[in-house]
Design a protein around this nucleic acid. Structure first.
Length: 262
DNA sequence: AATGCGTACAACCGCACGATC
DNA sequence: CGATCGTGCGGTTGTACGCAT
């Protein structure tokens, strides 16, 4: 297989398989074929569908983009919270995490983690896989998310989630299913939220956290989605995390310019 | 208005694993 | 039992876009 980076990634060049961005025509071919014949056998599917693509490419395009139940748009605070918590349990098991966020793909979650979460780690100059960063997430980020969810607990349920879907791609393809105005996924019970007695938002060992954990959450809050928190957050809020717990040993964890996303 | 920079995300790759031959 | 194939997963990269200067 020729390496994408060794030559022009987005040129088919000759009779070789196409790579790079999918065209609307290709998408339609794939959608139509799968609607008639179903998924699977991706290599032969690519041939029979008349797509000059690898099976892997077809599979990826379908699973990450074209599949009807794919939910697009920004992650809700609850989804972000869930990702943080599940990642703390399972690490980079993106597909496993994605199973708990119906409509979200492992690719999307992975991108979120890399672009948002790891950025925080970089700013804090700590390893995103370190215990310190995990503690920071649990003691600062998660409580803030929960607080945000609480603040907006008078849910504008009727507001359309699609209002936050603004990508050009989403506008280009309107094949995505309308997002349910009910809970976007089965409400997990506290037991399966992964937040329990041995995996809670403990503030133990906060003193081990780096001193540069100072800054504000203002920009962070601004980065949160504003419209739809229709999830029953009681399971999480019930953990009774007080923001005051984030003030430890004279350190103001909630000060300026921390946890901002941009 | 032009340019540079940072971010988000689609799409690729290599590798691993299970099923089938 | 080994080889091959199909599939899934996690990591990485390229590009479009938005924002700041």
């Amino acid at each position: 297989m020729s390496k994408a980076k060794s030559n022009n990634m987005y040129e088919s060049g000759n009779d070789e398989l196409r790579r790079g961005p999918w065209t609307l025509e290709e998408d339609n071919l794939l959608i139509q074929y799968i609607s008639c014949h179903g998924e699977g056998r991706w290599n032969s599917l690519a041939n029979f569908a008349g797509l000059n693509r690898t099976g892997k490419s077809c599979r990826l395009r379908w699973l990450n983009y074209l599949k009807p139940d794919i939910k697009r748009g920004n992650l809700t605070p609850h989804e972000q919270l869930l990702i943080l918590e599940l990642h703390s349990k399972w690490g980079n098991r993106w597909s496993k995490i994605a199973q708990h966020l119906p409509g979200r793909t492992d690719n999307e979650i992975k991108n979120y983690w890399r672009t948002r979460v790891q950025k925080q780690a970089r700013q804090l100059k700590i390893d995103s896989n370190s215990k310190k960063f995990l503690e920071a997430i649990r003691t600062v980020w998660m409580p803030r998310l929960m607080e945000k969810m609480e603040q907006d607990s008078s849910p504008p349920i009727s507001s359309s989630p699609s209002s936050s879907i603004s990508t050009m791609e989403t506008q280009k393809y309107s094949t995505t299913s309308p997002v349910s105005k009910q809970a976007p996924f089965p409400c997990p019970q506290p037991d399966n939220m992964g937040i329990n007695s041995d995996n809670n938002f403990s503030t133990n060992n906060i003193s081990e956290l780096p001193e540069n954990l100072e800054g504000s959450l203002n920009q962070f809050e601004n980065s949160l989605d504003e419209n739809y928190y229709y999830y029953d957050t009681q399971a999480l809020v019930g953990q009774d995390i007080s923001m005051s717990e984030c003030h430890v040993e004279g350190m103001d964890w909630l000060g300026e310019d921390l946890w901002n996303f941009r």
